[in-house]
Structures are given as structure tokens and as C-alpha cells.
């Protein structure tokens, strides 16, 4: 199977600080790819580069054989490449159902669809996804009133509602009660298998990433340190050094 995202030689600097240097990364279609690395190693910067949050200094990013490194956020999102945020972002004053209904895939929208009503199918799908993440009972509450963990789940459900090809998840388990993490891993895996969504996941929690990912990349000091199967990366001496601060 081919690669759905191909990152080639991407660099990004903030002023004098080099956040990404000459990054090469592939996301295989239909798989779960993990991205690990110590704090400040440039993971989120890479995410932001891929989804078009800021311009990159050099290199190329291809999605479905299409260069996306000069496109804008909305265009990239409408191609089917979506991300969630580390600091969860939802529409706080709207209730959960409304949050879901506005997350329908906009790439299919023509101009007049703006004035359409939400269809019964949309509503059904919204309800079933809310049930999937366990928020059905709270669906009439303003999303801003949910707890942080619940907002995270809502954001995940919104992303699924959008039917992306690829979903970039920025630390999906951060801030979630450890007892619930297994349930979340299960849902992420099901999103991959049942909905056929390719995942690229930033994760600090080694247990989570080893459980889920097919391929893992390790980033340190803005460069790719190691990549390959989870076990191989986990046992790589350079990765261990980077995590223990021997670098």
C-alpha cells in the first residue's frame, strides 16, 4: 500500500530556533503511524507544517500525490486531512449536537448548501458518533461546560464526523483519566479499522503508542532520530538516550 502523506526535507525555524530540520516522514495509507519525542522536539511544529498552519522554510509535503505545502488550512482540511489540537478546541457556546452537525464534510459542499438544513442522516450520524465516544447523554449541554477529557472526546467525534482520509491527533490521551485510556485506545483503533481512517498520532505515553502504531518515528532536537516498527524504535539506544536526557 502506498503512502498517503510524504514529507520530504521539511525545515522550519522560529527566528533563530530550528524546530524542524530536514524531516522525512511517510504515513502509510490505512495504517496508524506514531510520532514520539521529548518535549520541544518539534512534533507539534511538524503537525502545524503538514496542516498548513504556518509556512515551511523548505522541503515538500505531499498528500495523495498533491503538493500541499503552500495551501491554506481550509483547503487542506477539505482535501480530507484533519487535525485535532493538543489544547482541545471545540465550539464552546454551542451544544454537542451542534458541534457535530457543523463538522460534516465541507469538501462536498457547493455554495447553496450553506443554506441547507441538517439532514436526518447527519443527525443520526452525529448521535451515533456521540454515543461512540460516550457523550450521548450530554449532547444538549454547551460543549464549553464539558470536562477537559470530554471535550477531547468530543473533538475526536467531530473529526470522525468530517470523514477525513487522514487524521492527525496531537496527544489524544494527555489529560485523560488513566483508567479511561484503554477505552480511548480501543476507539482510536476502531476509527482506523471500522471507519478506515489513516492516523498519525503524537503521543507521549509509550504504552499507548506501542499498543497502537504500525510504524513509529522518533523526533529529537527537530530531527528524525529513528523510525521503524514500535519494538525496534523502543529499544533503539539513541531513543532511550534522548528520552533520558543523555543527549
Amino acid at each position: 500500500m502506498g503512502n498517503v502523506i510524504e514529507v520530504r526535507g521539511v525545515s522550519k525555524a522560529y527566528g533563530g530556533v530550528i524546530a524542524n530540520k530536514d524531516i522525512d516522514l511517510n504515513v502509510a495509507d490505512g495504517k496508524i503511524t506514531g510520532l514520539i519525542g521529548p518535549n520541544g522536539s518539534g512534533k507539534t511544529t511538524l503537525f502545524n507544517s503538514i496542516v498548513g498552519f504556518h509556512p515551511i522554510d523548505g522541503g515538500s509535503i505531499r498528500f495523495d500525490d498533491q503538493e500541499i505545502s503552500t495551501m491554506r488550512v481550509q483547503q487542506i482540511a477539505r482535501l480530507g486531512l484533519l487535525r485535532t489540537f493538543q489544547q482541545t478546541r471545540i465550539y464552546g457556546k454551542m451544544n454537542c449536537v451542534q458541534n457535530m452537525l457543523i463538522s460534516i464534510p465541507h469538501r462536498k459542499h457547493r455554495f447553496l448548501d450553506m443554506f441547507g438544513h441538517s439532514t436526518a442522516a447527519d443527525r443520526e450520524k452525529a448521535d451515533s458518533l456521540l454515543e461512540f465516544v460516550g457523550l450521548y447523554g450530554k449532547r444538549m449541554l454547551p460543549a464549553g461546560d464539558l470536562s477537559f477529557g470530554q471535550q477531547k472526546l468530543l473533538e475526536f467525534a467531530m473529526a470522525l464526523m468530517n470523514e477525513p482520509k487522514v487524521l492527525l491527533l496531537d496527544e489524544p490521551t494527555a489529560g485523560i483519566n488513566p483508567t479511561l485510556i484503554n477505552g480511548l485506545i480501543d476507539r482510536l483503533k476502531r476509527a482506523n479499522t471500522d471507519f478506515g481512517i489513516t492516523l498519525l498520532v503524537i503521543e507521549h505515553n509509550m504504552r499507548v503508542i506501542m499498543n497502537m502504531a504500525d510504524t513509529v518515528y522518533c523526533l529529537a532536537h527537530g530531527e528524525i532520530l529513528a523510525s521503524g516498527a514500535p519494538e525496534a524504535v523502543q529499544n533503539d539506544q539513541r531513543v532511550i538516550d534522548a528520552y533520558l536526557g543523555a543527549h
Binding site: 488550512v73 484533519l82 489540537f85 478546541r89 465550539y91 457556546k93 454551542m94 457543523i102
Partner: peptide, 17 residues
């Protein structure tokens, strides 16, 4: 309302803001 609550998120979700 989505634009009001978080325009960046709305862009990220592909809404034609």
C-alpha cells in the same frame, strides 16, 4: 456560531469561513 466560538478550529475543520 462556529466562527464566533473558534474561527481557527472552523478553518481547520474545512468550513468555508
Amino acid at each position: 456560531n462556529a466562527i464566533r466560538d473558534d474561527e481557527e478550529k472552523a478553518e481547520g475543520m474545512g468550513i468555508h469561513t
